[in-house]
Design a protein around this nucleic acid. Structure first.
Lengths: 128, 128
DNA sequence: TCTGTAATTAACCAATCAGCTAAATAACCA
DNA sequence: TGGTTATTTAGCTGATTGGTTAATTACAGA
């Protein structure tokens, strides 16, 4: 597991880390502030933050003895892009689009009209 | 790690498993067919399939001595929903929307007009 | 019934993970 | 300088993970 996407998914596969991200969604926070809602030790939080930072999901600055964390959402964009490739497998409207396209293609095969068309809905470009 | 979302993210945090899902995106496949592109043993594939099935990302039927797998995208819908909550943190247009709303609010505070408005962009409902 | 193919289970291994306590740094405050 | 607060590092643990090989189950077909 060394690719970017795997690292991101792994970082998100923990409710504590997702809760940390959720908190950071409302602004920067110090380590202690982030630790407050949880009943785990500070070193455990430090480790979670390291995982998130390593995945590029947070960045850290320095302010006096505090080390505030800030949400960095770029990796989530990548996740959204990946999952989007599968939207048609759950999206109702996409199913309808598929049905429509199949219908149109059937009509074309029947030879009612002969427009030339280029790609009409590429479907095999799911990347892993 | 026992919640649904964590299980799903964990299942996706492996390139082999994502490749299996990608292959299943073009239709059902047997275990051997899924194993073919990889240089790992069959039992390893069986384990990966068990992880995916456990996450609800695939379902399995029985056909003779084959056990074909089928993509089940429902959990990905949940993932898409989760990540969507963070879209504003990477989306340029959302940034512009935020700026616009801030501007509107500033005008209201200045008392130029007094329309009452209800929610104006709830921002703290990020769930983990 | 015997043989070959498909897939799983069992048992093991090394690496990683999420947590802990105790100790070490780092920076502010008096 | 010394004390307090914030955070990290070190070192340990038990559980999980991703892989292996060997054995087992399930079925099709001759």
């Amino acid at each position: 597991m060394n690719d970017h996407l795997s690292t991101t998914f792994a970082a998100l596969a923990d409710p504590t880390r997702r809760a940390i991200l959720a908190k950071l969604a409302s602004g920067e926070a110090s380590v202690s502030e982030l630790a407050e809602p949880f009943s785990i030790s500070m070193p455990a939080i430090t480790k979670h933050l390291k995982v998130l930072e390593n995945a590029g999901l947070i960045s850290r600055t320095r302010s006096a003895q505090f080390r505030p964390c800030k949400l960095q959402a770029a990796p989530l964009k990548e996740v959204a892009g990946w999952v989007e490739e599968y939207r048609r497998f759950w999206s109702e409207s996409f199913d309808r689009l598929e049905a429509y396209l199949a219908e149109v293609q059937a009509e074309e095969h029947a030879g009612k009209k002969k427009k030339k068309h280029k790609k009409k809905h590429k479907r095999s470009s799911v990347n892993h």
